[in-house]
């Protein structure tokens, strides 16, 4: 198994295209968590995120031979996941979340100390909901930047647009988040 653990993504894809199923499993085990979490932050439902992630890996299984290595494998895989998530959102057209005002009121009504506030699950829920209220393109760019650690260039590849557009989307996303989260920010 070490052979697989030490292999680069491109090497794993090459092995898999040559019918090595263990190479494919290694890719799945490596990326399942980041892909599911990325999709979850885009669509807001963990169960559905798992389902879409399965579809994404199925697509990978069926089309890995088309990967030519022009962009990084990670970017390519996240692009598949992103497209599937956007398709799903088009169908149901809203992020699955509770009203943000209700969570904010609940948090402020508890009179928690700053430390207690940071550790509360309601705050995490509030942040996730605030991200879920962003426009889809802004949310996608912000999540890839802040949670997945992508560079602006990589995000532009996933989103099929310019680096300038990505910077603008992230800037606007942060502006909106600052407004939503102003009651706790410095």
């Amino acid at each position: 198994m070490d052979k697989y653990r030490l292999a680069s993504d491109d090497e794993l894809v090459r092995c898999f295209v040559n019918s090595d199923i263990k190479a494919f499993e290694t890719i799945v085990l490596k990326y399942q968590k980041p892909i599911i979490n990325f999709i979850y932050r885009i669509i807001g439902n963990f169960q559905e995120a798992e389902d879409i992630a399965q579809e994404a890996f199925m697509k990978l299984y069926c089309s890995a031979y088309t990967y030519e290595g022009h962009s990084s494998f990670t970017t390519w895989l996240f692009k598949i996941a992103s497209n599937l998530s956007c398709d799903r959102l088009r169908v149901r057209s809203h992020w699955d979340c509770v009203p943000i005002d209700a969570i904010r009121d609940g948090l402020q009504g508890k009179l928690l100390s700053p430390q207690e506030l940071v550790e509360s699950s309601e705050l995490t829920q509030f942040i996730e909901t605030a991200i879920g209220r962003l426009a889809i393109q802004q949310r996608q760019a912000l999540v890839l930047r802040e949670y997945c650690g992508f560079s602006y260039t990589e995000i532009a590849e996933v989103a099929d647009c310019s680096v300038t557009a990505i910077k603008s989307r992230i800037h606007k996303a942060k502006q909106k988040l600052r407004k939503e989260l102003s009651f706790i920010l410095d």
Binding site: N37, A53, V118, T124, E146, D186
Partner: peptide
């Protein structure tokens, strides 16, 4: 607290074990 620190409070969840 800064915005980037606040965003990071939302942690990644584990993938289901049978995924």
């Amino acid at each position: 607290m800064k915005l980037s620190q606040l965003i990071k409070l939302s942690k990644d969840r584990e993938a289901p074990p049978d995924f």
